[in-house]
Structures are given as structure tokens and as C-alpha cells.
Amino acid sequence: MTKEEKKIYVNKKGLRLDGRKVDETRPIKIKAGVLENAKGSCYLEWGQNKVLVSVHGPNEVLPKHMSNPLRAIVKFNYRMAAFSVPDRKNPRPGRRDIEISKVCGEALEKAIFLEKYPNSQIEVWAQILDSNAGSRAAALTAASVALADAGIPMKDLVTAVAVGRIDGKIVLDLNKEEEDAPDAVDMPIALMSNSKEIVLLQMDGLFSKKEWEEAFELAAKGIEEIKKLQVKALKEQFEKTLAQELAEEKKTETKKEETSKKEEKDSKKDSEKEVKTEVH
């Protein structure tokens, strides 16, 4: 590649190829409770990534030898749809799918109160419908919303995001184009934000210690923002009806006020009349 053709990943204004700032994530949309027949579910759009997660359980473990009489087990299934990438993906779970299922399942195990449901399993199915880098962070973020939606007791919501380095600059939430940069480092990270406990940390490439510290700080900041969206998605289901309720109450109150004002006016008129009659 000649010098002229070299891509500028972060320009002088501090903007990236798709116009984002260094500490900005792609637009995120979360909706909880989308599937009727699952105990809990969540649909998440994170830039081009689209993830649908359903949660079943806790129920009996099959095969039975996998059950643990002291606590529940989490079965996380990360699957990419055949049409989720530009070339067709073989729908058979490959090395990558199995690895992501394992690390994401272990991340969720840290958050759930597993000892409450011994000898049982909690199944999480994460289906990636469309992907463009950062799909494991998207799947994990959606899965924790789906678990909360199923009513499974958890310490905290798990929130994930990727940080990385391109052109020597630390950036938040890399997309596919940035991930393919020549010196790119990609580090997905998941936290429980109350206790700042790290539940998932993987790294592709190498960071210096100073860079790692900067990256972690950036990720923690991004995670705070994403967690707000998760909380909003969970509360939205109930607050809509509550907001309607309040609006109705307000309407009736204003009506009451109007009627009471009218009554007051009427009574005032009456009293005036009375006074007038007295004068006469």
C-alpha cells in the first residue's frame, strides 16, 4: 500500500471513518420481552449488529449427568445465522461459536444467584441475525436484559463493549473496517458496573500497560452509558402503562379543577346577588 492510499482512521478533528468520536459507540436500540413463548427475551440493535436472545428455565438438566446438585448451570448458545455475514456462514457451530458460548455463559454465571436453583439449568439462546464486529458484546448485553426479563435473580446487569487501538489511538466500539486495520488491537470487555467486577476480558493483539489502563477507563465509561439503555429497556415495559395512567389522572384532575372553578364562580355570583339584594 502506498502512502497516499493509506486510510486515516482518526482524522485531525478526532472523528473516525464513520463520523463517530473516539469515545462514542454505534447507535444502540434495546427492546425487552419480544418473544411470547420464551420466559424472557430481548432484541438488540448495535450499529449493524442485530441480536435476538431468548431465555428458558430454570428447568431440569438434560443430559442428567451435567447437573450440579449445589447450583444451577448456564447453557449459553451463541449462533450466527447463515445470512449474518457477507459470505454464507456454515450454520454448523464452529470453533468460534463454541468459544463465544463458553465465555459468555461463564460471564453470566458470575451475575446470577445460581445457588438458589440447584440441579437445574438456565438456557440462553443468542441468535445473531446480522453482524459487523462486536457481536459477542452485543449478545452478552442482550442476554443479561433477557435474563432480567425472565425474572431470574441476578446481582447486576452484565454490560459488554469492545475497546481497541487503531493508528495508535485508543477507541471505543470498533466496527469491522477498524478491526481490519493493520495495527488494530481489539479487546471485548464485560463488567458488572456496581462492583466494577470484570466478567469477560479477551484481547486480540497487544497493549502496553499504559494503553490498557486508558482502554479500561474508556470501556468503563462506555459501559455506564450502555447500562442506562439496558435499564430503560427493562423499565419501559411497565412505565408506558404507568405514564398513560398518570396522564389519565391528570386529565381527570384538570376536569375536576375546572368544575370546581365553575362552582366557585357560580357561588361568587350568587353571593354578589345576595349582597345586591341586601343593598336594595
Partner: peptide, 29 residues
């Protein structure tokens, strides 16, 4: 929601809460 602060006061804890660093948090929606 799970992990959200219920109260910072010292109260008897009932169902679906847990204590962490002396504060009481919820564990469900």
C-alpha cells in the same frame, strides 16, 4: 431492575434483595 439501589438506610431486608457494601440492592425487576 437487578443491581439497582433499593435503599442506603439500614433496614431489615425482605425478599428479592441483597446487601453489598452496606447498601441494599434489588435482584429482580
Amino acid at each position: 431492575v437487578p443491581g439497582e439501589l433499593v435503599t442506603e438506610q439500614r433496614k431489615r431486608s425482605g425478599e428479592h434483595v441483597y446487601t453489598f457494601n452496606g447498601k441494599i440492592y434489588s435482584d429482580v425487576v
